[in-house]
C-alpha cells in the first residue's frame, strides 16, 4: 500500500451523538492535505480520533497507518508509529522543563539514549528557527507561556520528535503576523523532506502560502462534502462555504457542536 494514512468510512460519536458520519481520507507519502470547514464541522474531531483521543468513540470504520490497521492502538502507540498532533490548548506541566520533557519523549520514541550535550545542541537549533529565547528550554512545559509561545512550542516538539505524519490543528490561530511567518516557514522546511506527510487544519491562507497543500478537503456537518486541489482553497477563501451548502442543498446556518 502506498498511502501513509488511510481512513475509511470513519464514524465517530460523543455521548451517542454522531459527529463524523463516514469519513474517507487517504494521505500518501510526501503529500500535504488541508482540511477546511466551518466551526463545529468536526475537523478537530477527525484529527483527535486519528490520535485515539478517548473522549471520541470510533463507532465504525478503519484507520490504517503504513498499511497496518491501527484501530486498537493506544495514543502512545500511535505516537511511536510516527503520528503527531499539535494541540490547540496544550497541557501545562509544572516541574518538567521543555528540555527534560523532549529528551525523555525522544528517548521513549526512539528507544535510544541520546547524550545531553548532543540533544541540547539539536534543541538549540530548532529553537533558533522558531525565534524562541534560549531560556525557553529551561521553563516548565507550557506553564505561564503566552498563546504564541504555546503554539511555537507545539511546532518545536514536532521538529524535535521528527514524526512521519504531522497533523496541525490550527497552528496559526491567535498568532501575530511575524509568528505566523515563522511557524509557516518551520513547517514548510520540515515538510521539504519528501518522506513526511501532513494534514493541516486552518482557517487562514497565510500559512498555506508557505506550506503548499496538494489536496483540500471540505468538511461540513461531519462529512467530507468536497475535495479538490489548491483551486478549491482559493475559492473557499474568497467565497466561504455557503456556495458548497447551496450546491448540496444544505441549510445555510448550523449549530456549533465542537470546534
Amino acid at each position: 500500500m502506498s498511502n501513509m494514512l488511510e481512513v475509511s468510512n470513519l464514524k465517530v460519536a460523543v455521548d451517542d451523538v454522531e459527529i463524523l458520519q463516514g469519513i474517507d481520507l487517504e494521505i500518501g507519502r510526501g503529500e500535504v492535505h488541508v482540511l477546511m470547514g466551518p466551526n463545529g464541522a468536526g475537523k478537530s474531531t477527525l484529527a483527535r480520533t486519528i490520535m485515539a483521543d478517548p473522549q471520541f468513540e470510533q463507532v465504525e470504520g478503519d484507520i490504517y497507518f503504513e498499511g497496518e490497521n491501527i484501530n486498537e492502538f493506544s495514543t502512545d502507540e500511535r505516537a511511536k508509529l510516527g503520528i503527531f498532533l499539535t494541540f490547540q490548548n496544550p497541557l501545562e506541566v509544572a516541574g518538567i522543563s521543555v528540555e527534560d520533557f523532549l529528551r525523555t519523549t525522544k528517548i521513549e520514541l526512539t528507544g535510544e539514549d541520546i547524550s545531553v550535550i548532543k540533544f541540547k545542541r539539536e534543541l538549540k537549533g530548532h529553537m533558533q528557527d522558531l525565534d524562541l529565547d534560549q531560556a525557553y528550554a529551561e521553563r516548565y512545559l507550557n506553564v505561564g507561556f503566552s498563546g504564541g509561545e504555546k503554539k511555537k512550542g507545539e511546532i518545536l516538539q514536532m521538529s524535535v520528535l521528527n514524526p512521519d505524519l504531522v497533523m496541525l490543528d490550527e497552528p496559526d490561530s491567535g498568532l501575530d503576523v511575524d509568528a505566523v511567518r515563522i511557524v509557516s516557514e518551520t513547517v514548510a522546511d520540515f515538510l521539504s523532506d519528501k518522506n513526511k506527510s501532513c494534514l493541516i487544519i486552518t482557517h487562514h491562507s497565510v500559512i498555506l502560502e508557505s506550506v503548499k497543500p496538494d489536496f483540500a478537503h471540505i468538511l461540513i456537518d461531519g462529512k467530507i462534502v468536497k475535495r479538490g486541489g489548491p483551486e478549491l482553497i482559493e475559492r473557499v477563501n474568497d467565497e466561504g462555504y455557503n456556495w458548497i451548502r447551496e450546491e448540496l442543498g444544505l441549510e445555510k446556518v448550523h449549530d456549533e457542536v465542537l470546534d
Binding site: D53, D76, L91, G95, T104, T105
Partner: peptide
C-alpha cells in the same frame, strides 16, 4: 491524551502529572 500523543505510556504520563 496530550502526553500520550507525544509517545509516553499511560503510566508514564500519570506519573509525570503527579510529579508536576
Amino acid at each position: 491524551f496530550y502526553l500520550m500523543s507525544r509517545g509516553l505510556s499511560r503510566k508514564e504520563s500519570e506519573s509525570l502529572i503527579v510529579e508536576s
